[in-house]
Amino acid sequence: MQYTVSIAFSPLDQLIDIAKAAEELGFDNIALPDSIFYFEKQSVDYPYTADGKRMFDENSPWVDPLILAGTLGAVTSTLRFYTNVMKLGSRNPLLLARQVGSVANLTNNRFGFGVGIGWAPEEFEWCGVPYAKRGKRVDEMIEVIKLVLGGGMVEFHGEFYDFDRLQMSPAPSKPVPFYVGGHTDVALKRAARVGDGWTSAMMTCDQLTETIAELRKLLAANGRADDPFEYQAVCIDKFGVDGHRDLVAAGVTDYIGIPWVFDGLPFDAPVDKKIDSMKRFADTYIHSGWQDA
């Protein structure tokens, strides 16, 4: 199982130190969250909390994840980065293809593109994109981005996007993996159809077990049963080595966590305290050899 540090809600001036420490301590990845802006009035429920309220406010720190991936890639050499997840629906696929290709090249293929749709009408409409048909539009966006990143002269004529022959150079030297987020049936079908992996929000181990089993059925139905596929999980009820053994048994391949939160520290704790938590986490899960037992 891989281990990924989420840097959600950390002050921006800590992120370089966290990434350097993560690489030194043997973590595999950094998960990069995405939010464009905070809107004061919320028109629909936030889908990942029980009460529908957002777990962040107008002062929560965010940075564009693609810019951050390039920045952190410049101060590391082996650590990988992936968006977790970037909300595609309010963005333009050709501009995203240019950005994703640039990050992949500048990090020497140490970047994975975690994608979702987006949940808030405000983000769509205030960025000039209709909220209606968002799922179909994102499906087409993924197709466009993959096409352009594949290199060479390409064209596309779809329901939402239409362009004649164009080329973006240089194309990444390896395919950029796409990790699809979401818990709905439609999202799981999308992951099985076009993804190189699936990423969860906060779930229990039982929920992960059930979802991963369903994804495996969907992959088989798409003729992809033997394809490499990542299961990236944020689990809320399994801790300690025994808990992580249960997650491996459930099929999880990549554990996403915030080590300092597990130690009871706030998101804005001093960076030296966070690194201490990362060391304890690494000693327990990465260096202990439990996966070889």
Rank of each mutant, 00 (worst) to 15 (best):
V248S: 03
D139F: 06
M203L: 15
T199L: 15
K217E: 13
R110A: 09
L72D: 04
L208N: 15
L215N: 01
V261W: 00
A74Y: 13
V144L: 05
D268T: 08
I142W: 12
P93C: 10
Q99R: 12
Y131K: 05
W62Q: 01
Y46R: 04
V63Y: 10
D13Y: 13
D45S: 15
K189V: 13
S43D: 10
K189L: 09
D28S: 06
Q42L: 07
P47A: 15
E210W: 05
P259N: 04
S77F: 15
P11A: 11
T253S: 13
F111D: 11
Y255R: 15
D139S: 15
M1W: 13
K217G: 12
K217F: 10
K146C: 05
D283Q: 11
S288V: 10
R280M: 01
L15F: 07
Q2C: 12
N59D: 12
G128S: 11
Y48L: 14
A69G: 11
I18A: 02
R193I: 14
D34C: 05
M55P: 09
E140Y: 08
A233W: 01
V44E: 13
Q207S: 11
K174P: 02
A201M: 15
Y161M: 04
A293I: 14
Q207M: 14
L149V: 07
V234F: 08
G118I: 09
M55F: 14
C235V: 08
F124S: 01
R80G: 15
R134G: 05
F160Y: 14
L218I: 12
G150N: 14
V148C: 03
R245C: 05
L66K: 03
W62V: 01
C127E: 15
N108W: 09
Q232N: 13
Y131H: 12
K189E: 14
L94F: 04
N84F: 04
L247Q: 13
K146W: 03
S173G: 10
F267A: 03
L32R: 01
D227G: 07
T284I: 14
S288N: 15
F27N: 00
N59H: 12
G128L: 11
L106D: 05
N59S: 10
D227I: 15
F27I: 00
D237L: 02
V129M: 14
A225K: 13
H287T: 06
F160C: 06
I7M: 04
K174A: 12
E230A: 14
S35N: 14
N108Y: 10
F81H: 09
K273I: 02
L96C: 07
T204E: 08
S60F: 00
M203G: 09
R216K: 12
P11F: 03
R245M: 07
D28C: 02
G289E: 12
A120S: 08
G70S: 08
T4Y: 00
G52I: 07
L32W: 03
V115F: 05
K279F: 02
R80H: 14
D185K: 09
V85H: 02
V144P: 02
W62C: 02
H157R: 13
D64M: 08
R245K: 11
Y179M: 04
V241L: 04
A22Y: 04
L149D: 06
S169K: 14
M168S: 12
K274S: 00
T78D: 15
K189H: 12
K87W: 09
V100M: 08
V271A: 02
S200Y: 01
V252C: 06
G158M: 04
T209V: 10
I145N: 03
A201E: 15
D276Q: 07
D34K: 03
